[in-house]
Design a protein around this nucleic acid. Structure first.
Lengths: 356, 356
DNA sequence: GACCCGGGTTTCAACGTTGAAATCACGGGA
DNA sequence: TCCCGTGATTTCAACGTTGAAACCCGGGTC
């Protein structure tokens, strides 16, 4: 026997029981038109009896809205994106929207498909956290669905974006180390090829350099630690704890060892957590000998040994701005693109105390 | 000026350009009916020219499927649920489904709403990870939408479930400590009120006790550490690092102190991570004096100090089983409910070595 | 040469909802 | 008494797609 379509009562079924036209039932449910108290009561009873639920597909077909947003991120399993997803779901819910989560695994093809709205045809808007694709590709691939880009990888002026300023935030983090008296600073997380790598990392490196310049310092090239190129098969990408661990261990094992390094700025918290482990394994005191700062303020960063000083982006605000932006585009597709900034703050912890 | 509906070309638009009936365009796209090579080419050209995308709402209305599943979890920001969401999205994608993520915050009302399918009317099935509601409530609230429950909180026979065996897994973890020579064991994560608390925690406690009994041991009641009741406002629930930290600190500060405790089984990794911090702060050597095991194998657990021994549920398999179950229900709503088990394994790390 | 077959294509209707406009009931004002 | 207005309700059509069935046409078959 073939599986029948799951029936489900319709407006007409409810109407039949309540003894009214199905349009009246619709009126009761939507509240758009006035309905007498008596009929309203009858209709509501019938709705309850049948456990009627409006069929969103039909409604969407009629009104052209699905009240669904798509959030596209590389990996939901990374703390940053998990937090982001949490924030976006919360922000969307506050305005009556649900969120479809799409994972791109950092695959350029999947990111393009996400930008085009391919798998998500029924969503009213797309929030895309890009990791592999560039401006031109994005602009070429985007479809009619309103799109807001999260993060600084994309810099095209013609698309809406919500960002946290990587340059100034990392500058602040670096300045924090300098204020604490650190003079020989390193950066963990440079990327081999600027075009294929994560742009945010470049910007953070730029912020690092800006702070050094402002203090009249310069970084030893040996202290700019490059991470491995992106690997599709790795579930964690190249900004992982493993990568941080491996890079710092390599530095320690290298000819110069630490070579006087007394402060390490990491492109994100996971790298920093890996770095902490490598330093600990080598018996290097943190923060005594080397101070460490991260970027993300992952929940676990308050529980590392020592607790990690980090840049905490305001993801709640980021999500609210992003949702507001995309809904603005839904209302008015002609609305000119904007770039909005979400705030951040430096969270000082023991890995980089102000008094050394 | 009112915002116009975002137009978007339809089958008819494509048909007009290609010079065929719109039904033929549909045939080309669905591939259900044979189409000559010539017309296929013309249609495909027209599709490309207009950048046509089928309107899923209309398709869904017609065929009664949305190819959308809803995953409902308490908090996406907790590592376990983030990993779970990742696994579910991946498993769903493999069979052509997208996933809508719903966060309940552990709110019973929201869990019931999720079970009923209220906010997710257009999804073909629901995967619910319940935290607050019980069997009867769930059975009363569930609607027509196929539902699969994840986890052991719900024990009703009349609903499909996919679980990881909490009792035997925690028994294994406890036995691991006993094998390593630990004799005075404690459990972190008992819940004050069995009915309102997390059932998984009860089962894990049961597994803990089973292992003790099998070894002829008994737990000192002082070593059964109860966590605070669930608090809606806390973003992390009662199974948090903070809670683990606070409870173990309280034990250490109490009259008996550790009182000989040499092994601690934790209901999840976050509690264990908090416990590790409290022990470290008090100068208690782990694993020298106290061995610690967790449950979850959160990614960060490999990077704690010392690295945490943990039970690793196979979430990939869990997700695949869950998706398969719910799709089976979609195909055949009458299909009798099943309970399926996902495997787990013990991941030994330094916090609980076999040789003390 | 009439008939059938089947690939290719089209016509028709329906999925469940809502905007727009028509209809109805009723009471108050002229 | 008649008309109007307003609140309440209904009729009508349409959103874009697909299942079912009809249609068309050229090539065998007898």
């Amino acid at each position: 026997m073939s599986a029948r379509r799951s029936a489900g009562p319709t407006l007409k079924d409810v109407a039949a029981i309540a003894g009214v036209s199905y349009r009246t039932v619709s009126n009761v449910i939507s509240g758009k038109a006035p309905v007498s108290a008596a009929t309203r009561a009858r209709v509501e009873a019938a709705v309850a009896e049948l456990d009627y639920r409006p069929q969103l597909a039909a409604r969407q077909l009629r009104v052209g809205r699905s009240n669904l947003l798509t959030l596209s991120v590389p990996f939901l399993s990374l703390p940053y994106f998990a937090q982001l997803a949490h924030a976006v779901v919360t922000a969307a819910e506050a305005v009556g929207y649900d969120v479809v989560v799409d994972e791109t695994h950092g695959d350029p093809e999947r990111e393009l498909r996400a930008a085009s709205g391919y798998r998500t045809l029924l969503s009213d808007g797309i929030l895309l956290s890009a990791m592999s694709i560039g401006d031109e590709e994005l602009m070429a691939a985007r479809g009619r669905t309103p799109l807001v880009v999260l993060g600084e990888r994309i810099r095209a002026a013609r698309v809406d974006r919500v960002v946290v300023d990587s340059v100034t935030s990392t500058r602040d983090a670096t300045a924090h180390l300098i204020t604490a008296g650190r003079r020989t600073l390193g950066f963990l997380g440079t990327v081999p090829d600027a075009s294929s790598g994560a742009a945010a990392a470049d910007l953070r490196l730029e912020g690092f350099r800006t702070a050094l310049r402002a203090a009249g310092l310069e970084a030893d090239p040996r202290h700019l630690l490059e991470v491995s190129p992106w690997d599709q098969r790795s579930p964690d990408g190249d900004y992982s704890r493993e990568e941080g661990h491996a890079r710092v261990r390599a530095l320690l094992a290298g000819p110069g060892g630490l070579a006087g390094l007394d402060g390490l700025v990491c492109a994100n918290d996971l790298l920093a957590i890996g770095a902490l482990r490598a330093l600990r394994e080598a018996g290097v005191d943190v923060p005594g000998r080397v101070a460490v700062v991260g970027w993300d303020d992952a929940p676990e960063s308050a529980y590392t040994v020592p607790p990690l000083t980090s840049i905490a982006p305001d993801l709640g605000e980021l999500a609210r701005l992003a949702v507001a932006s995309v809904l603005r585009l839904v209302d008015d597709p002609e609305s000119p693109p904007r770039v909005e900034q979400a705030p951040y703050r430096l969270v000082p912890r023991a890995s980089a105390p102000l008094i050394p």
